[in-house]
């Protein structure tokens, strides 16, 4: 039972926007709101987005657009999403919680919750995703890397909702990798990592390396990305990038892992994700842990 005084079910985006206020929580799947008290601080009413036309998952103008009501299960099985950089976003969505959670939880909710351990932000950051917010003054787009401000803190005002996440379709030949370490198959990541590589004429011309659960926000490792550029996608390059991921990590200790263990895993996850993207992982190996 949530301690709230009212449950609003707006039938249009306009109605929803008129309702948004600091004391009203936005609910899509609700799987975070119902179990994590931090999202209920100061909340007296809920606004359920379920009746809004935000269940679209489509390509428009070179962007895959994923609406606020699209579940993790729908993202995980979408052929459109599967086509992005070796399906790294599909794979992040497919390991987020248990099947019952993935049938309810939404990708946009995973972004809005802004937790550093979430499974879809690293692939989304590696794919240079954008967040489309809508508020009383209209729409604004924020690059996902600027959206996360800290644990459960993001650049969303109380009178705004996230309409969708937009993922630019990468150029042909863009490779990706994703690797998660968790205590069990359904647990939150102890550490996860996603990456994207584009190789032309034997040299890396574009690189993204993102590690989750090792910093206050999902962490893009700029040093690793810079070090990869211009190099051949070989074992030495990915090991070096993994070492730079360890150096960039600023993890905490909690019930899942010590900071020291997480720092080590930052390198393991980044290196294994990069091996996948570089074609260095044996077929079928090192795709997942637990």
């Amino acid at each position: 039972m949530l301690s709230v005084d009212a449950y609003h079910r707006p039938r249009s985006l306009e109605q929803a926007l008129a309702l948004l206020a600091p004391e009203r929580a936005v609910v899509a799947g609700g799987t975070d709101l119902l179990v994590n008290p931090r999202y209920m601080a100061g909340v007296r009413e809920v606004v359920d987005l379920g009746s809004l036309p935000l269940a679209f998952l489509e390509v428009r103008a070179g962007q895959v657009r994923i609406g606020a009501n699209v579940t993790m299960a729908a993202v995980a099985r979408s052929p459109l999403v599967r086509g992005l950089a070796d399906a790294i976003l599909s794979r992040g969505a497919a390991v987020c919680g248990s099947p019952n959670i993935r049938n309810m939880a939404t990708l946009v909710g995973n972004v809005a919750a802004a937790l550093p351990s979430a499974d879809t932000p690293p692939p989304l950051l590696a794919l240079d995703a954008w967040v489309l917010l809508r508020g009383p003054a209209g729409a604004r787009r924020v690059a996902l890397q600027d959206f996360f401000l800290g644990p459960a803190r993001a650049d969303r005002r109380p009178d705004e909702l996230i309409e969708c996440v937009e993922v630019p379709v990468p150029p042909p030949g863009t490779a990706g990798g994703f690797y998660k370490v968790g205590r069990t198959a359904d647990d939150i990541a102890t550490v996860n990592a996603a990456c994207v590589l584009r190789v032309e004429e034997g040299r890396i011309v574009a690189a993204r390396v993102v590690v989750g659960a090792v910093a206050p926000v999902p962490l893009r490792v700029a040093d690793a990305e810079a070090a990869l550029l211009g190099r051949a996608p070989d074992e030495a390059a990915v090991v070096e990038a993994g070492r730079l991921a360890v150096a960039a990590a600023q993890p905490i200790s909690d019930q899942r892992a010590s900071a020291e263990h997480r720092r080590h895993l930052a390198g393991v996850c980044a290196t294994r994700a990069l091996r996948q993207a570089a074609g260095l992982a044996p077929h079928g190996a090192e795709l997942a842990h637990a």
């Binding site: 609910v27 609700g30 809920v46 359920d48 019952n100 049938n103 309810m104």
Partner: peptide, 18 residues
């Protein structure tokens, strides 16, 4: 666990309004 409109979900963290 229950089936809600064809999908299995956890009823404990699903608002009844859904």
């Amino acid at each position: 666990g229950v089936i809600l409109d064809g999908r299995s979900v956890n009823a404990c963290c699903t608002l009844a309004g859904k």
